[in-house]
Nucleic acid binder design. Structure first.
Lengths: 230, 230
DNA sequence: ACCTGAACACCGTTCAAGT
DNA sequence: ACCTGAACACCGTTCAAGT
């Protein structure tokens, strides 16, 4: 009979999988600034230095965490082969957008290192496969796919930005903050800011996710047009 | 006769303008990680705490630095009133892109806080004014302008990313690194990655700035189409 | 009004040493 | 092979005190 029950486990032990999964959990729960080697190690039950056995830097940790999350996007976009390639491309783009929008930290690390981010590569290919069906040249197909990715990342990064201090500390609601911005914009000189005044009411009532879809459709329209022309 | 020449200046003195200008210089010379309160204060000839008289946090410092740089974009896009609104919108977009691409730190802070970033607001209006000339509804105009901004920021952020470690430390040239990536991609299973293989040669020879313009034109085509339809 | 000096509470990263 | 302990060289930020 071994005295297993008496022995206290003194040495922690993890795995790359556990390290990355825990990093993502920390990121999702408390944001990018909460991810420190000390906090991560504490959750894993060990010392900060132990994490360095699995990743060689914080950059690599974030690269891998980003790629880890993309697995969900891949899972959600399997077996796309609808009648309209553009519809399928839209589905991939929207799914990616929805994943980034709730993870402000993701945009900055997406597809930074193809070697360490196999899922990003798969996603790139999956989107590309849909666009390929339009029959464009390799050159135009590459341009179109890159444009879609750039648009999704850029818009998501823009919209998932950290809210201003006054909103974070609870001294101002998000809605109140929006109303304040609208009020300030309304006070601007209409001759100096004609566009701002033109779209003020739209700005006051717009929804980010809806606007993203509208912009995406403009881009996809341009791509379809190119396909039909040539 | 005062003994001015003998007295040594013991107290440093700056101004908000000087602080921001020096921050931009530091950023442009050595990148985001080089911008610390200590390094900035050293250049200004004072202690780190003195900077806090002008800005209340590093975030605010970066917000203001970003906006400072946009003044150049504004200056370069004055008096746009060509015959084609789309051409003028393209000019604003390209100018903004060219400014961000050489400043990787800019994308993350662009238009984060309209209050602290008056130039961003002006630029937003300037681009919007061109799109307004297309005669779309306020709703569609807002969507179109937001899409262009998102595309520019996203693509620029993507392309201005820090090169990988091996390139930074000089152990691999940028071109060598690209060739390596191509070689790795060529080794991928063509059935699993049909798109990657389809565009491989294009990838190997493409130019980022050219590809940005191609993508922008796709989006602008979609917008023009919308204008002609409605 | 604006700056100094010095500290506080953190960071990422390294490395000899342990198991 | 994998983890611990403890340190190193930094950070942003604060604050009493000076001028």
């Amino acid at each position: 009979m071994a005295d297993d029950s008496k022995r206290t486990r003194t040495r922690a032990t993890h795995s790359l999988e556990a390290v990355i999964a825990e990093a993502v959990a920390l990121l999702d729960e408390s944001g990018e600034q909460a991810l420190t080697f000390r906090a991560l190690a504490a959750r894993l039950g060990g010392g900060p230095a132990s994490v360095y056995w699995y990743v060689s830097s914080k950059d690599e940790l974030l690269d891998r965490a980003s790629d880890h999350v993309l697995a969900d996007v891949l899972a959600a976009t399997e077996d796309l082969q609808g009648s309209d390639p553009i519809d399928d491309a839209r589905t991939v783009a929207v799914t990616l957008f929805d994943t980034i929008i709730v993870r402000p930290w993701l945009a900055a690390y997406f597809m930074r290192d193809a070697e360490q981010q196999p899922n990003a590569l798969r996603l790139f290919d999956r989107l590309g496969r849909q666009v390929m069906r339009l029959g464009l040249t390799a050159h135009d197909t590459f341009d179109a796919v890159s444009a879609i990715i750039g648009f999704v990342i850029g818009t998501a990064a823009d919209l998932s930005q950290q809210p201003p201090q006054t909103v974070r500390d609870g001294s101002l609601s998000l809605d109140q903050h929006l109303q304040d911005a609208v009020a300030r914009w309304r006070a601007l000189d209409p001759h100096e800011f004609p566009f701002i005044h033109f779209i003020l009411d739209e700005f006051a009532t717009h929804d980010d996710a809806t606007q993203f879809r509208a912009g995406l459709d403009l881009l996809l329209d341009g791509i379809r047009q190119r396909a039909e022309a040539g």
